[in-house]
């Protein structure tokens, strides 16, 4: 399977009053399309920085990031926004729904920004997405009226709004109980089944998830890359 995501010699460092801090060091990483990948590591290992490179939220200090034939590292902020909207759906640990919009409106807003879904098809698609994540009854509620698990499912529906080929989740179950965690992670597995590339940042291993790869980071470097293995 061709390399869908390619990191070549990617480093990211930050300058601060206390000196230079290397968050990522010479990362070489290739991920195939349709893979279900876990990025693991302790706090401060560079997981989130790696994720930021994947989503175009941050630029590498050195090296190149090529995703689906696009040199993401070379795009400016404006081009990145458009690229991200079409190619990457992001799920955050704290859900990050717009609190003043209903669930439906949160999803519609993402569609509006990217404008790849024709206007007259959007409402129908919202209904289908919410049905897929299992919260059809919550369509017109504000995020505050939903449980944590429901909010995260709404956030996943929003991430899928523009049908991106890549779904990236940053510790998506970090704030959820075990039962809800299972529902969310199973949802990701189902999405992999539809052809999405799903990359999940996690610091916990769960028995019931089958990842194609588990990449472990430590001090900004890949220290383990287990391919096609079932986690125990």
């Amino acid at each position: 399977m061709p390399n869908f995501i390619q990191f070549n010699q990617v480093s990211r460092w930050f300058e601060s009053a206390s000196g230079r801090f290397d968050a990522l060091k010479n990362i070489n990483l290739h991920i195939a399309q349709g893979n279900h990948v876990a990025i693991a590591g302790k706090s401060g290992s560079g997981k989130s920085t790696l994720l930021n490179m994947l989503t175009g939220i941050d630029h590498p200090s050195q090296g190149t990031v090529r995703i689906n034939s696009t040199d993401v590292h070379a795009l400016n902020e404006s081009a990145l926004a458009g690229w991200r909207g079409k190619n990457v759906g992001i799920v955050f640990q704290f859900f990050q729904l717009i609190p003043t919009l209903t669930v439906k409106e949160n999803i519609l807003l993402a569609m509006d920004f990217v404008n790849v879904i024709p206007g007259r098809e959007r409402a129908k698609r919202v209904g289908a997405l919410l049905a897929q994540v299992g919260i059809s009854q919550q369509t017109d509620k504000l995020p505050v009226a939903l449980s944590g698990g429901e909010q995260q499912r709404a956030a996943i529906a929003r991430a899928l709004a523009n049908d991106p080929p890549i779904l990236v989740a940053d510790e998506p179950t970090g704030n959820l109980d075990s039962k809800t965690t299972e529902i969310i992670l199973n949802l990701f597995t189902e999405l992999v089944g539809t052809g999405k590339t799903v990359i999940v940042v996690t610091h916990e291993k769960v028995a019931y998830v089958e990842y194609d790869r588990i990449i472990t980071l430590k001090d900004g470097m890949i220290v383990d890359d287990t391919g096609r293995s079932r986690t125990q």
């Binding site: 902020e77 404006s78 926004a81 458009g82 909207g85 759906g89 990050q96 920004f113 990217v114 523009n162």
Partner: peptide, 12 residues
């Protein structure tokens, strides 16, 4: 940041 992360351009 969230708006931009879900695809909003600066102009939007």
């Amino acid at each position: 940041g969230i708006l931009k992360a879900i695809g909003a351009s600066r102009f939007q």
